[in-house]
Each structure stands twice: as C-alpha cells, then as structure tokens.
Computed example of a mutant assay.
Amino acid sequence: MIHRVVIRAVNGSVTNDFGTVYAATRRFLDGGPVYVENLQVVDPHYLYAPSATVLLSPFGMIDMYTYARWIFIAFNALCIIGAVLLLLRLFKISLSSYATPAVFLAVFCTESVTNTLVFTNINGLIFLCQAAFFVLLHERRLWAAGIPMGLSLAIKPMLAPLLLLPLLRRQWQPFVGAVAIPLVAFAAGWWLTSDGKSYFDIITPYMSEVRDYYNSSLAGAGLYFGVPEPLILALRILVIVMAAVAVYLLMGYRHNHEVLWLSTTSGVVMAAVFLVSSLGQMYYSMVLIPLMLTVVLRESLVRNAAAWVAAYGFFTMDMWESERWPFHGRLVEFLHPTFGWLLIIVTILVVLLWRYFDPERRQHITPSVKTPAAT
C-alpha cells in the first residue's frame, strides 16, 4: 500500500487525470469558462458535470499543483482503505484475521487500484460510496443508503445501475438521496459555472461517441479492430440477455444470502455495463472487488477456476505487448479486460443454471423451501 501511494502514485504517469480537474476547478473558482479543452486530442479531458465541479472545487483552492495532487492521491487512497474496511465488515471478516492483510494486498495489487492512484482520478471515492451503499442497504438503513449513492452520482454516473438493487426489493427510500443530492449539486454547479450550457452542448455528445483508444467495451474494441457493426450489436444484445437472465436467477438469493446477492448482482450488472456502453475502461473494474470477495461465502458463485481467470483478465497489471508476436500481443493487451468481463458473466450464469436445474443444488438458492428430493 505504501509502495503504491508513495512511490507509484507520486511518481505518476503520462496519463494524468488530475491535471484536467485541477485546471478546470481553478478556472471555475476564477469565474472563467470550465469546458474549454480540445476534445480532438487523446489527452485526458475534463468531462465532469457542473455538480462534480462544485464538489471537487476545494482541490482548486490549493495554490501549489504538486501539493494539490498529493492531497488528492492521499484522499483517494484513504477512500479505498475505507471501502475495504467496510467490505470486511460486510463479509464479517475480522480485522485480526489473516484474511485482512491478504485482502488489502490483493486489492492494492490490482490494476484498478494502482492506476486509480497513479493516474490520480476520483474512482477511489466512487469505490467508497459503493461499499457504503452496500453496507447501509444490508443494515436496512435505507434513507442513509441514498447519501453515498447520491454523492457518487453527483460526481460521475458510474454507479447508477446499482440502483437496480433497491428497485428489485421495492425499497424506495434510497432513491430520495440518490436523486436529490446530484440534482441540488447540479443546480448549484450550473448556476455558478459561467459556461454550464457547454456541458450539454459539447461534453454530453462527446461522451456518447465510441472512441477507439483506451476503450475496452465491445464497441470500442470492435472499432479498434474493425469488427463489423452488426456483429458488435449482436454481441451487445447477447450480453444484455445473459446479464438479465443471471440477475433474474440471482433473485432467489436475496432473502437467505443477501450479501452474496448484493455483491454478485452488482458485479454482473456492472460488468455488463462496461461491455455494452460506449466507454469501458479497465480501472472501472474496482467496483467488481465485492463480487470477487464473495469467494469467502459458502454459496459463492466464484469458487471456480473460470471466475479467477476472468478476474485475472480485468485485474491484472501484466503488459502483453510482444516484440516477437506484435499482433497477438496487442490483441491480448487490448482485449483481456473485455474477455474478463465477458467470462465472469458467462461463468456466473452457467453456475446459476447448473444449480437451478438440479433439485439438490437448488437448496443453495432457497434452503427454507423443501425440494422434491428432500420431501
């Protein structure tokens, strides 16, 4: 953890997501236009909504860029640590257990956490909001659950699909905070930003486009490798269908295995979103950490080799560029997160179907209901 924060993150990378945030928040605080970047280049762009600009503006108050970046790194590192602690609480793993340092080691070795810190982006806070949302839902603090979700949506809409979880359980309370917080923050940002209209005129159309660089979604990979659009569309539809079937079959776990249901359903939904959306970047996989942590649960759907091959695909730091086999190396380098997201959905769906169609294994789903075999 110290190595990732003090060495890798402070050293930085060519990719610097914080530079655009710092410059935009400085312009915002000075009353100037925020959305002034050239979107034709491949450098990181400031694509946050006015609501995020307001919430991130305190970092722009720091006069020295280097100190502001270090504070931002430390802030995200603390958020990631807090998220892991909440997940340990959710999975009932004691802090004195050998599993605790093992989990921290595994988490900080992932590409998701490492590059979140090295690239200096805000995904650490998003991860903390996800973990807090799960804990509060599980503890039936439904009104409070909307607060971390609303905060995350005010910054970026990445976790919006997870509102499916309270929706499936007909819990409306989390939606109050999840909707009210981003609306209020957006209204404040719109009023305080001199060029708020540019967010809809320039940024929103740009984000809907499929780009062929740093994009592991099916559409992005298809565009990069020249795959016919009808085939990409068919694959996207297939992923949606598989994810929908998996979510339906997982409903049987929501009463007797709630933590498993929350974590696994969220993982399936988010992996599907990464695949079918216009942009899927590998470090988004941080939100799949709760899914892989379900391995500690007896009824887990990731206690198999295929699930961990998938995890390697979307968590690995390995670089696959090859001087001897340049095309094949580039193919693996660009597609291993795509492969991982797809394989984890397929794996979970296969295990669910395997359990569903076997009377004895159906006890894994609803042990309180007698099966014909038990009768």
Rank of each mutant, 00 (worst) to 15 (best):
E209W: 09
A180L: 15
Y206R: 03
Q173S: 09
V350A: 06
V247H: 11
D30C: 07
S94E: 14
M242K: 12
P182V: 04
G252V: 09
V176M: 02
G12H: 04
P367F: 00
T264S: 11
A246H: 08
L279Y: 12
M158P: 00
L90A: 10
V42P: 11
V295E: 09
M319N: 15
G82F: 06
V269R: 04
L352E: 04
W308N: 04
P230S: 09
N304P: 04
V269K: 09
I73Y: 11
A221K: 12
P33I: 09
N11A: 10
P372V: 08
A23S: 13
M270F: 15
M292A: 06
K92R: 14
T114F: 13
P359S: 07
S198D: 10
A187H: 00
F315N: 06
L233G: 03
R170G: 10
V309T: 08
M251I: 02
Y206T: 12
M64F: 14
L301E: 01
S57K: 06
C79T: 08
L183Y: 01
S263C: 15
I147S: 08
E323S: 11
E229W: 07
P337I: 07
E299Q: 15
P290V: 11
R69P: 10
Y253K: 10
L88Q: 03
A244V: 12
N256P: 02
Q363N: 10
A160L: 14
W261F: 14
L288F: 07
T114V: 14
S263Y: 00
T53K: 01
Y48D: 05
L55K: 05
S216V: 04
G189M: 04
M242Y: 13
T347N: 03
A271P: 04
W325D: 08
